[in-house]
């Protein structure tokens, strides 16, 4: 029982983490990024390469891949997204355009990964030491994944709610039209938010690769789950993403353990539908 709680929290922690990235990109930059999961998978493979061929531990890989995720997403925003933002007559148009473009980007990233690594399942063994947590044995890498997710998630919440930088990003999310009157450069804020999202995706990739097998085509699953978490939590809500992510991880783990592993996705969608019937704008959503 406790074992499933811990495993559920580990899985949920990573869901919460990556969903935070997606919700920041969507809430602040107004871009629904369908290639988000593929960014995660790219980071998984990058960690794998760094670890297996250069013996760089995933922890150190974070120091390389997180800034890379930030920088690359910044470039993607400047080159691909900025023209869309510039020509979009309104927010709805930008949403549709960004969905189409990132849908294309998804296949570009996936294609590159398939070319480089093939379609097979990939994994590596890192910090597989069994650790005793309150009487249950958990793999060290899972525990590390949970701790990292929580730490990075907490850091993000502190940045968003306790710093001027975060305040500016939140203001752009809450009142995009008024933000320039506050002297806020909304274009820069959107670029920063998109890049932070990319950095979080990279973090998620490193963390997930430590305890899960992954394939070049698994990005879609991560995008979908992150999307479910974002909508469940309330669009643009970081606390909502955390709660919904943990909930989703627990539901998946418990259904896999006590019902049938094949029913996890069905269970996730059931929870998703039921919660949305009660709270159409998500757990922390605003009407």
């Amino acid at each position: 029982m406790l074992e499933h709680v811990v495993n559920g929290l580990v899985l949920g922690g990573t869901y919460a983490l990556v969903a935070m990235g997606l919700t920041i990109q969507y809430g602040i930059a107004r871009i629904m990024n369908l290639s988000f999961g593929d960014t995660i998978i790219a980071a998984c493979f990058a960690t794998y390469v760094l670890f297996t061929s250069l013996s760089i531990s995933p922890i150190l890989a974070l120091l390389i891949l997180v800034p890379s995720g930030y920088a690359l997403s910044n470039v993607v925003y400047r080159v691909i997204m900025k023209p869309l933002v510039a020509r979009a007559p309104d927010e709805g148009a930008l949403e549709v355009d960004s969905i189409l473009v990132t849908f294309g980007l998804l296949f570009v990233i996936q294609g590159i990964l398939l070319y480089l690594f093939g379609g097979g399942y990939t994994s590596y063994s890192f910090f597989n030491t069994p650790i005793n947590v309150l009487g249950t044995v958990v793999a060290g890498n899972r525990l590390l994944a949970l701790v990292l997710s929580l730490m990075i998630g907490a850091a993000l919440v502190i940045i968003l709610f306790r710093t001027r930088w975060g305040m500016i990003l939140r203001a752009v999310a809450l009142a995009p039209k008024s933000a320039p009157l506050f002297g806020i450069d909304t274009d820069r804020a959107a670029r920063t938010a998109f890049a932070i999202g990319g950095a979080i995706a990279a973090t998620g990739g490193v963390v997930i690769s430590m305890f899960q097998t992954f394939t070049a085509t698994a990005g879609v699953v991560f995008t979908m789950k992150a999307l479910i978490v974002v909508i469940l939590g309330g669009k643009g809500s970081v606390p909502g993403a955390i709660v919904a992510g943990l909930l989703l991880g627990l539901v998946e783990t418990f259904v896999a353990a006590y019902v049938d592993p094949g029913l996890t996705l069905a269970a996730v969608y059931t929870v998703f539908l039921l919660l949305l019937l009660v709270r159409p704008n998500g757990i922390f959503g605003k009407a």
Binding site: M167, A171, L174, A175, K177, S178, L181, K286
Partner: peptide, 9 residues
């Protein structure tokens, strides 16, 4: 017009 404040802050 409409004040331009951030209501949810």
């Amino acid at each position: 017009e409409g004040r331009g404040v951030v209501g949810r802050m």
